[in-house]
């Protein structure tokens, strides 16, 4: 007997990358389960499914440890969005983003959205901050320079806390707004009967990276 085919075909694959211990698993767990609890360090990768309106979103958590780099690049394949996580009080985790993780995203979708996320903002003090907001913000713009982010609210940069829940769902909503323009698309299907003559282009939902 064979394992049944994986039944849910995902509409979007989101992958989270970042150095070990920066809080990736906690971040995803906070979003999916709505709670903050201790986790063992991730081995290999883990996988979550999330319903977003009519869409299935596969969220892949990866292991930050360097020895899994080869695997992480494999898991990046076909990702529509990547969350690049770093610890704002440890500059090395920030540096690994471009040194180690950005190259992995070659395997991802061409127009993969890259969201830079500073973690653990709850324990950050001005004294411990090693990466400035401006710096990170600029970085987030640069790595997405091939994408048109004009429709999105702000830069793809967030400072979050999985402990308090601050900004966690905002990150995902930002991603979905770009990749799965949900409410728009649905509103448009509903209003399709009435064509806006002044703005005929509007009636066609724009195809984005994920609408394969």
């Amino acid at each position: 007997m064979e394992a049944g085919p994986v039944t849910t075909v995902e509409d979007l694959k989101v992958i989270i990358l970042g150095d070990y211990n920066v809080g990736k698993t906690s971040f995803i767990c906070r979003y999916i389960e709505g709670q903050f609890k201790p986790h063992d360090t991730t081995i290999g990768a883990a996988f979550f499914l999330k319903q977003w309106g009519p869409y299935n979103v596969a969220v892949w958590d990866t292991a930050g440890d360097e020895r899994y780099t080869g695997l992480s690049s494999f898991y990046c394949r076909n990702a529509g969005a990547a969350i690049l996580a770093f610890d704002m009080s440890i500059v090395s985790t920030y540096e690994s983003l471009w040194a180690r993780f950005i190259p992995l995203l070659d395997a991802a979708h061409e127009d993969c959205l890259k969201v830079v996320v500073g973690m653990k903002v709850d324990i950050l003090t001005p004294g411990t901050r090693e990466v400035t907001v401006e710096e990170a913000r600029k970085f987030s713009r640069e790595i997405n320079d091939k994408l048109d982010l004009s429709k999105l609210p702000g830069d793809p940069y967030f400072e979050t806390s999985s402990k308090s829940g601050l900004n966690v769902s905002e990150v995902f909503e930002y991603v979905f707004q770009y990749c799965l323009p949900l409410s728009d698309a649905q509103r448009k299907t509903q209003d399709q009967e009435t064509v806006d003559l002044n703005n005929p282009l509007n009636s066609k939902p724009k195809s984005k990276c994920c609408s394969r």
Binding site: I43, G44, A45, F47, A58, F74, N78
Partner: peptide
Amino acid sequence: AGVSQRPPLQ
């Protein structure tokens, strides 16, 4: 397709 649809086994 060269991708994974299940998390890895340990």
